[in-house]
Amino acid sequence: MRLLFDALSYGTRPSGTRTRVLGLVPELVGLGLDIGILAGPGWSADEEARLDGATFVRVPDVPRGPLSRWWRQARIHRRAQSEYHCDFVVSECLPWPATDRLIGVVHDLRWRRDTSWAARARRRALIDGCARARQIHVVSPTTAAQLAAVLPESVDHLRVVPNGVDVARFTAAVGPTDDAILERRGLRPGYVLCVGHFEPRKAPDVAIAVRTEMAKRYVDVPLVMVGRGALLPEEGMCALKGQFPNQDAGRVLRDVTAEELPALYRGAGVVLAPSRDEGFGIAPLEALACGAPVVASDIPTHRDVLGDAARLCRVDDVSVFVGAVLSIVEQGADAPLVTGPAQAARWTWKAAAESFVQAIDEAGRS
């Protein structure tokens, strides 16, 4: 079977959707599927090496913005399919893929509580995309339930094909370069780590608030925030440094590489995941795989994916988050070194690939 993965809309920044391609495609290639990747120029040499065995279908001029994609991406799809004859196109569930053999992917429904015009347009696009899709893949049972509530007519086409974690890269075993990575970043083990795109639903403001409350209690443990995005947690970090000049408030790292991330997880005293909404929650799962204690928001996705291996706190309740973080920082927590990797092992890319193949075989028979 030949599949074409549309990776044009993933851009160059780290994201759950980009991580899905990097995790799922190598496993599918290993299972004998012929995979093409419709991609722009923003893929690093390391990423392409990880996708060895897949065929890159290059698009030199990637359309930017929804209107440009709407007008141009259908034409790009037709040209790509004439070059790479495939059985199915795997793409975000949007209306512009020009094929009747679309496997639409829905990662999250972050827009469902948003009343802005952009969110309404995104909802309309999703409805149109779902109507065109032969099959709809969602990344977690929570996302499946949310989509079924919004679009009841999509239920018959929904299949849960989860995300996963690369348990070969994210492991509790200390790597030979871990100390060098922490030293290069000016870190000592035991910091509070928060990993995620800097956007409102990831709640970086809660992470800053937790560090502020810790400082008020004279707990001098730095907060390390890893990610990119439009929000500026640097402003909150600067205010924190000004308010508590004798403490190490922490730092914001926007340029962390894939090679550095496992070492940062392993060096953390606790990993904080205060998201208000998630489709899957890859970052806290990676942290568990590395044996790090995790304090996360009590949202349905985290309950599904993290289980009892993480401490869950009410969304936006800073005092509860502070209590959970301090109980780990001050008393230590050995349990995640055992339960975390075991929980992460339930969500591997190999298992995700097997679910994907089962769903695709079903779509091929329909």
Results as ranks from 00 to 15, higher is better:
192 V>A: 07
175 G>H: 04
66 P>F: 02
324 A>C: 11
135 Q>T: 15
227 G>W: 00
226 V>C: 03
120 R>D: 02
65 G>M: 08
346 R>A: 11
280 F>N: 06
59 V>Y: 00
61 D>R: 15
38 L>C: 08
337 L>S: 14
351 A>Y: 04
168 A>Y: 03
193 L>C: 11
191 Y>E: 00
23 G>E: 05
139 V>R: 00
168 A>S: 13
342 A>R: 15
91 S>I: 08
92 E>M: 08
147 L>A: 10
70 W>H: 05
247 Q>V: 02
5 F>Q: 02
356 F>L: 09
41 P>Y: 04
134 R>F: 00
280 F>H: 02
128 D>V: 11
174 V>P: 06
285 L>W: 01
126 L>E: 03
266 R>N: 04
106 V>P: 02
22 L>K: 12
313 C>E: 08
24 L>S: 12
137 H>L: 13
362 E>N: 13
130 C>Q: 07
357 V>R: 14
270 V>N: 06
22 L>P: 12
167 V>A: 02
261 L>G: 00
194 C>I: 05
246 N>H: 11
248 D>M: 06
214 M>Y: 06
244 F>C: 04
7 A>F: 06
222 P>M: 04
237 M>P: 09
82 S>Q: 15
154 S>P: 10
171 T>I: 05
46 D>T: 14
323 G>Q: 14
137 H>A: 14
289 A>I: 12
127 I>P: 00
180 A>H: 10
72 R>S: 05
76 I>D: 00
115 T>P: 09
17 T>M: 13
363 A>Y: 11
160 V>K: 06
1 M>H: 12
249 A>Q: 00
195 V>C: 09
91 S>K: 02
102 L>C: 01
141 P>E: 09
124 R>Y: 04
205 D>R: 14
114 D>A: 06
293 P>I: 12
175 G>Q: 04
150 V>P: 00
333 A>Y: 01
275 S>P: 13
223 L>Q: 08
63 P>A: 01
134 R>V: 11
192 V>S: 03
286 E>I: 08
151 L>I: 15
297 S>C: 08
132 R>P: 03
23 G>A: 11
350 K>R: 15
253 L>Q: 06
308 D>E: 15
308 D>P: 15
69 R>N: 00
187 L>H: 04
14 P>H: 02
234 E>Q: 13
212 T>D: 14
79 R>L: 12
214 M>I: 11
105 V>D: 00
62 V>M: 10
283 A>R: 07
143 T>K: 03
280 F>P: 02
259 E>W: 05
17 T>R: 09
364 G>V: 10
330 E>W: 07
237 M>C: 06
330 E>G: 09
277 D>A: 15
196 G>H: 04
183 E>K: 14
309 A>T: 13
183 E>D: 12
50 R>V: 09
303 R>Y: 08
329 V>L: 15
259 E>I: 11
182 L>H: 10
244 F>Q: 05
250 G>V: 04
145 A>G: 12
271 V>G: 02
335 A>P: 05
299 I>H: 03
256 V>H: 05
299 I>A: 06
298 D>F: 10
352 A>Q: 09
70 W>V: 04
42 G>Y: 10
202 K>F: 09
218 Y>P: 01
86 C>A: 15
184 R>M: 08
276 R>Q: 11
204 P>W: 03
61 D>T: 14
301 T>M: 12
219 V>I: 15
162 P>S: 13
